[in-house]
Computed example of a mutant assay.
Amino acid sequence: MSLTLTVDGDRWRSHLRSVAEASPGLVPVVKGNGYGLTLGRLARRSEWLGVDTIAVGTYTELPEVARRFSGSLVVLTPWRPFVDDLDPTLAARVIHTLGRIEDVEALLARDPRARFVLELRTSMVRHGFLARGLWEAADRLRRHPGARLEGLALHLPLGQGSHLGEVRRLLNDAVAAGLDGLDTIWVSHLVGAELDWLRAAYADFTIRPRIGTALWLGDRSALRVTSTVLDVHRVDRGDVFGYRGRQAPRAGHLLIVSGGTAHGIGLESPTGESSLKARAATLARGGLDAAGFVRSPFSVDAKLRLFAEPPHMQASMLFVPRGTRVPEVGAQIDVRVRYTATSFDRIVVT
């Protein structure tokens, strides 16, 4: 009676090994909901892969992963002076991310032996130093001979073609800044050929690719999400049902299935798509919603079925028209989910 993620263990582990072998210096990203697989499981699997460092999203995630992974821990969210002091048992393992000159001074005043990377501001325009700021950071660090600069970090946007021109410009700025002891580049969202170019063009640097989705979710065929059919009710056209007293549009069946808003089912985030086709699809979904017909992520006989009404907290109500095979109570049906936004009742790794 649950929303279940089943993982083909052999296939998943084979994929993880192949990514690790193809990505020298790999830094697995273990953050958020653990890509649906939980932080603890991914931390343990990172230990199994034999990597020396993983990346977490925030400082609050450190305790969960630190108990299950013995190496270094990069925090991707930039450090700020209002971050609480670290557990002393973790301080030597944590690598902070710095993106402002005032934070360089503040962190080193708090912990002169802190480990950190300097983040460069990419075309994402989220965090990081511009070229002038790097020059100033280099000057400040010369006054702190005990500072432990672990390298430069680049968080690049997804898609949008090749990033190599931007990477070259940013790294040339960094080299010109004269940062003492700079020998490592930590980078997100570069793929195979781009990483090969980076290693060849900057052979004096160690390249550390930070990989999350392509590592943990790169072989979707190894993952299957299923929902349990909790109840089945026959309805005729005009029958009233649900929280909001909706009427059945025609004869069929209502399926009550596990999985609702508490799991992330039915919640949608902006896609960022701006094409005419994407806008038309949004308008179409809006029209379906107004009429009470919204396609759900639950499928029966390989066809996505309609929500009979908006999903509930832990269950959803689907409408299956007459003439369609109706699964029995207790049957498992497939569900399409966004793994990074879904919580599962059970995770089974075979």
Rank of each mutant, 00 (worst) to 15 (best):
216 W>E: 02
133 G>L: 05
233 H>F: 03
167 V>R: 00
317 M>K: 01
125 V>G: 04
198 L>P: 04
145 P>A: 12
268 E>T: 10
220 R>C: 01
215 L>W: 01
34 G>D: 14
68 R>S: 12
97 T>Q: 08
315 A>D: 02
340 T>C: 11
293 F>I: 15
12 W>P: 00
9 G>W: 12
338 R>N: 15
317 M>Y: 00
136 E>C: 03
90 L>Y: 13
116 F>V: 05
301 D>N: 06
283 L>N: 12
81 P>Q: 03
142 R>I: 12
42 L>M: 11
286 G>D: 08
327 P>H: 03
21 E>T: 13
324 T>M: 08
1 M>C: 11
24 P>G: 06
178 G>Y: 10
188 S>M: 14
263 H>V: 09
323 G>E: 03
152 L>F: 00
344 F>H: 04
15 H>D: 01
192 G>S: 14
160 Q>I: 10
339 Y>F: 15
215 L>V: 02
266 G>C: 11
329 V>T: 10
42 L>N: 09
219 D>Y: 00
213 T>I: 07
348 V>N: 11
128 G>Q: 10
256 I>R: 12
204 D>W: 03
127 H>E: 13
94 V>C: 03
69 F>H: 04
211 I>P: 00
338 R>S: 14
46 S>P: 10
90 L>G: 09
266 G>I: 10
278 A>K: 07
60 T>N: 12
310 P>S: 02
292 G>T: 02
141 L>V: 12
100 R>I: 02
74 V>L: 15
239 D>G: 07
254 L>Y: 09
119 E>T: 06
327 P>Y: 03
145 P>T: 07
106 A>L: 01
91 A>S: 15
58 T>K: 08
141 L>G: 13
184 T>L: 11
203 A>H: 10
250 R>A: 15
170 L>C: 00
343 S>Q: 09
15 H>T: 02
32 G>E: 06
316 S>P: 08
271 T>W: 11
318 L>Y: 06
18 S>M: 07
256 I>Q: 11
54 I>W: 07
270 P>L: 08
344 F>W: 05
78 P>Y: 06
50 G>K: 04
81 P>D: 01
139 D>C: 06
301 D>L: 06
265 I>H: 08
314 Q>F: 04
173 D>N: 07
284 A>P: 00
102 E>T: 12
77 T>S: 14
261 T>K: 14
287 G>S: 05
135 W>H: 13
212 G>W: 02
309 E>I: 06
